[in-house]
Amino acid sequence: MAKSLGPVKRKFAPWTEPGAVPFIRFENITKRYGDFTAVSNLNLDIYEREFFSLLGPSGCGKTTLMRMLAGFEEPTEGRILLQGKDISGVPPYRRPTNMMFQSYALFPHMTVEKNVAFGLEQDNLPKGEIQTRVEEMLRLVKLEEFAKRKPGQLSGGQRQRVALARSLAKRPKVLLLDEPLGALDRKLREETQFELMDIQHTLGLTFLIVTHDQEEAMTVSDRIAVMDKGVIVQVATPAEIYEAPNCRYVADFIGDINIMEGTVVSASAGRGEAGTVGIDCDGLPVAVEQQQCTAAAGDKVAFAIRPEKVRISLDQPVDTSVNAAYGEVWDIGYLGDFSVFLVKLPDDRIIRAAQANVSRLVDRPITFGDMVWLRWPHDAGLVLAR
């Protein structure tokens, strides 16, 4: 198995195994609505038991892709394979998938247990089996004591769990989640993310979630597909997406980042090889150690570095010839667990530096108007050629 970048949730990475067969395969999928192309010649493999996220801004095509898998839309071109079988033309109710909608779509006049049982009754399952499966699902989502209540008597988080139980009751091979946590407050959303992960691991199902919430995708996913304008820009694990974005779009879309334009002045290795790249970012000398870099001397590139990798200090570093900048603290964002400092350089550029608040400080050592030094290690940033 290939070594993963950053921490992993579990020892599960079938996409790194040469002989692994995809559970879901999108082959050359295009979806047009008149003159508008929502999805363009897209290819994607998803593996069994994977928690996979489609992440991107509104209108990027992620929901359209999910709806085609569910059977609510048909591709204009291409085909979708599930367990090696083409499911094009198969109606939604005959596909081994189930979708949980953002609105939950619960029946307000039915009790919790009746809502969960609804799909099973539609399939004419024996009453005994329905009762057993409903009880199993309510235990799974920890709602046994609320079985006789109606949706209007539940909190938002409880209604979300009822919708999840109903979606899982039919034992689909693939559960599709369309912005499932969007209606929850931040704290409840964070708690529910871990509950979803636990349920997915317990049942061993394949989960496909559509979201525009970067933090949500980073938390729950084994892998993420970042989409833009109907195409997939990068598919990778959360750590790889964050630490090694393959282009400026992904780097800028995921989390907070400083991006500076520059010109390569030196490269200690050939294209695609590991080495140190020297960049002139409009007078700011930068050196970057990178495992794979396609840049060569004279190329126009961007240097990208996350704020938490930039060190801020009142003291001048020993070496200021490279990876160091001097400026004024222009603004401070106090976020509780960490603070973000906006430092204005002499040429009016702003660089963000984040610092963890590891101790309780009454008097902050760095404050507005202070002249500070910023520095970062050679391996902290990235060279982005596109």
Rank of each mutant, 00 (worst) to 15 (best):
K3G: 12
S4Y: 08
S4A: 15
S4G: 09
F12W: 08
T16P: 04
F26T: 13
G34N: 00
F36P: 04
S40D: 14
S53Q: 02
S53K: 01
C60V: 11
T64H: 01
M66W: 10
A70F: 01
F72D: 11
P75A: 02
G78P: 01
L82Y: 06
G89W: 00
P92V: 03
R94V: 06
R94N: 11
T97N: 10
T97V: 13
M100H: 12
M100V: 08
Y104A: 01
P108F: 07
H109P: 07
M110D: 02
E113N: 15
K114C: 10
A117M: 07
F118Q: 06
E135G: 11
R139F: 14
V141D: 03
G152A: 01
G157M: 11
Q160I: 09
V162M: 05
A163I: 07
A165S: 05
K173C: 08
P180N: 08
D198P: 08
H201Y: 11
L203K: 03
I209G: 12
V210F: 12
T211C: 14
Q214A: 07
M218N: 02
T219A: 14
D222N: 09
R223K: 07
I224S: 12
A225I: 11
G230V: 05
G230I: 00
V231T: 14
V231S: 10
V235K: 04
C247A: 07
R248D: 08
D252Y: 06
D252P: 02
F253Y: 00
G255K: 00
T263I: 14
A267M: 06
T276Q: 09
I279T: 02
D282R: 00
G283Q: 06
G283F: 01
G283C: 01
Q291L: 11
C293Q: 00
T294F: 15
A295D: 05
V301N: 03
F303Y: 15
A304N: 05
E308C: 10
V310I: 14
R311Q: 15
D315G: 11
A324S: 13
G333A: 15
Y334K: 09
D337S: 12
S339P: 00
F341A: 02
R349C: 01
R349E: 02
I350R: 04
I351R: 04
A356T: 09
V358N: 15
V362T: 13
R364N: 13
I366C: 14
V372R: 03
L374S: 12
G381P: 09
R386A: 15
